[in-house]
Design a protein around this nucleic acid. Structure first.
Lengths: 159, 159
DNA sequence: GGTATTTTACTCGGATAGTCTATGTCCGAGTGAGTCTGG
DNA sequence: CCAGACTCACTCGGACATAGACTATCCGAGTAAAATACC
């Protein structure tokens, strides 16, 4: 029940992309900056691309850029792109096995246990949906010294 | 990022135990009622026992009963007992790898990305914490016909 | 009939095995920009 | 000088390998109640 580390990588990479709106950033640079294996990080970026959150371009000067404005991309978008949209709880309807149920009797509605779990899952999603990449950028400006933010952005600038 | 099916089993079993306060229920009966493998279900019940949510007794007439009143056991208790207490997001501090950080410079505080994920996790936990086994029992009484509830309870009564 | 022994049915825990998922590596095909070559 | 060929660095996708987690299954030790044996 733990998210895969690709989710963390994808969030940090999107944070970078949001800070570099004027150019594309290559997988190689993103991987080197974060110290993670390039080939594997590539999987996460491909997932973001499939979900339409980032756009990749091919060729020598290729790389990724955000497909939408940072205000229009939420944490939930990114998490779901990488992790999938399955709910954290899957009801296997074991209540239907109850030997006391009459023949051909189907319990109707959502299982009472599952309903609680689904609501909890929705609370989790609602919070992720409420935070955008733009919000994340603002928080970073508050937490990180300005010169480090500037240096980091400069690190990605194409010479 | 999906909870294991033992969580579902544990929740349903606790629901049964809450409905049978006057006797102990054996793993065998719980497994047969739900149509799941007895030996494996036993692992989930052992986890509940280790967490102090249920009490098992040995011997021929042994079985489990709730260790506390249904009002005092939340969904979160059960989920954490089976699934563990790890958060759904684990920050590996990849921000510390930033090549622009000065030597021996430690970014302070919780990573901005992690903070959002932690808050979402807490929203999930808060909802699970807000629902008790007693609440679940009330919902079942509303959803399931009375005679089926009575038959099911009778199914577990020791002869 | 009462006590001691045996049987039975359960819990608990460890050992084991198969399958699935997550993690990570490797490689080839396709692409586009810059570079080189030939006229 | 300019058009076409070439090279390079990148994306994309699939194939593959490994480790760990999940899903079981099995068995032995311990325990308590019931059944049985024995005096």
């Amino acid at each position: 029940m733990v998210l895969r580390n690709q989710v963390e990588w994808a969030l940090h990479c999107c944070s970078i992309l949001a800070a570099m709106p004027d150019q594309e950033v290559s997988t190689r640079d993103l991987a080197a900056f974060h110290g993670v294996p390039k080939e594997y990080l590539s999987k996460a970026l491909q997932a973001l691309s499939r979900a339409g959150l980032v756009e990749g371009s091919l060729g020598k000067t290729g790389g990724y850029r955000l497909a939408r404005k940072p205000e229009a991309i939420t944490f939930l978008d990114i998490v779901q792109a990488v992790e999938g949209k399955r709910r954290s709880f899957e009801c296997s309807e074991i209540r239907q096995n109850n030997p006391c149920l009459p023949e051909d009797f189907k319990v109707k509605g959502v299982c009472a246990v599952a309903r609680v779990m689904y609501d909890a899952d929705e609370a989790w999603r609602a919070h992720l949906r409420s935070v955008t990449l733009a919000d994340l950028g603002k928080n970073l400006q508050r937490d990180v010294p300005v010169e480090i933010l500037a240096d980091s952005r400069q690190w990605f600038v194409r010479t």
